[in-house]
Amino acid sequence: MMASMKDIKLRIKSVQSTMQITRAMKLVASSRLRRAQQRVTESRPYHETLSATLSDIANSNSDFTSMYMQKREIKKKLYIVFAGDRGLAGGYNSNMFRMIEAETKGESCCFLPVGKKALEYFTKRGREVVTDAFPLVGEISVSDCFEMARIVCKGYVNGDYDEIHVAGTVFKSVMSQIPVTTQLLPFTPKPVEGHREVILYEPGSAETFNAIIPEYIAGMIYSVMCESSASEQGARRMAMENATNNASDMLDTLSLHYNRARQAAITQEITEIVSGAAGSEG
């Protein structure tokens, strides 16, 4: 009985230590989540304005053509995939990889992984990786997003791949993060209702459009990165909160078992003392 009590006590200490870690990780994730949400809000107007400008150029010029809009036979696709730098974030990483596998099944694809988990996933499975220069999402800067845009635009122009998609996780709430893919190239302008005035661009609409495309792709990549970072922190905060609550429930159960074991040990000692006293009197 005493050995059982010792085991329970050690287990209680172990759970308490784990709960302290999960509680601390929850607080860290909450702090990072607030900063990530702010970046999401600040990044949206930039790529929305670029997207609207590109659509205006494409829709307002009847003779407009661009290599970035021309659809061609799909021989290979490129996916820019954002995943986490660490685990302990619930289903954040696994949901992303499950979606990618479903979308790319039976297709010829290459990948530009962003984040340690994404790089590990595609490398271990022998998938074609365009570059491994962006292993940590937490260290990605705006200039890195422009570098990624330069790499993918160059590959697209050279015919290395015929479609470019970016895969990230949209942050809906702390409890809801949805992995999605967005096609970047060929660019599809948003339909515009009603009559549009013809706008003249210098040096020309095609030149202006082609110059904006890398900026647009860099902006989209940065926006997806912000959304994915917020989603990762939201998923980690929720996972750590659940882990903390489970640890608390486990402590309650272990405390109950410990008290029962302690009460049984006390009862047994009293019984032995009473039995010994009765025997000595006899």
Rank of each mutant, 00 (worst) to 15 (best):
S4M: 08
M5I: 07
M5T: 04
K9A: 07
R11K: 13
I12N: 05
S14T: 12
Q16W: 03
T18P: 00
M19C: 08
T22N: 04
T22K: 08
A24Q: 13
A29Y: 06
L33V: 06
R34A: 10
R34T: 14
R39F: 08
V40R: 09
E42H: 14
H47F: 11
H47Y: 13
L50C: 05
S51Y: 14
A52D: 10
A52T: 14
D56I: 15
N61E: 04
N61D: 05
S62R: 15
S66N: 05
M67W: 09
K71G: 03
E73D: 10
I80T: 08
F82C: 02
G87I: 06
G87M: 11
L88N: 13
G90K: 08
R98H: 14
M99F: 15
G106L: 07
V114L: 01
V114W: 01
G115M: 02
K116D: 04
Y121A: 06
R127A: 05
V130N: 01
T131R: 04
D132I: 12
A133L: 01
F134R: 07
V137F: 01
E139H: 13
D144S: 09
F146M: 07
A149V: 00
A149Q: 05
I151Y: 06
V152H: 10
K154C: 07
K154H: 12
Y156I: 01
Y156R: 11
V157A: 15
G159V: 01
D160F: 11
D160P: 03
V170A: 11
K172G: 06
T182S: 09
L184T: 04
T188H: 10
P189E: 02
P191G: 02
E193P: 14
G194P: 14
G194Y: 10
H195V: 13
I199L: 15
Y201A: 07
P203T: 05
E207M: 13
T208Q: 09
F209P: 13
F209H: 11
N210A: 09
Y216R: 08
G219H: 06
I221E: 00
I221Q: 01
M225I: 14
M225D: 03
S229V: 12
A230E: 00
A235T: 07
R236W: 01
R236S: 08
R237Q: 11
E241D: 13
T244N: 05
T244E: 06
N245P: 00
N246D: 08
S248K: 06
D249G: 06
L251F: 04
S255M: 07
L256M: 12
H257C: 02
N259I: 06
A261H: 05
A261I: 00
A261R: 09
R262E: 01
R262I: 04
Q263N: 15
A265F: 12
A265K: 13
E269F: 12
I273A: 08
I273Y: 08
I273G: 02
A278Y: 11
A278D: 04
E281T: 15
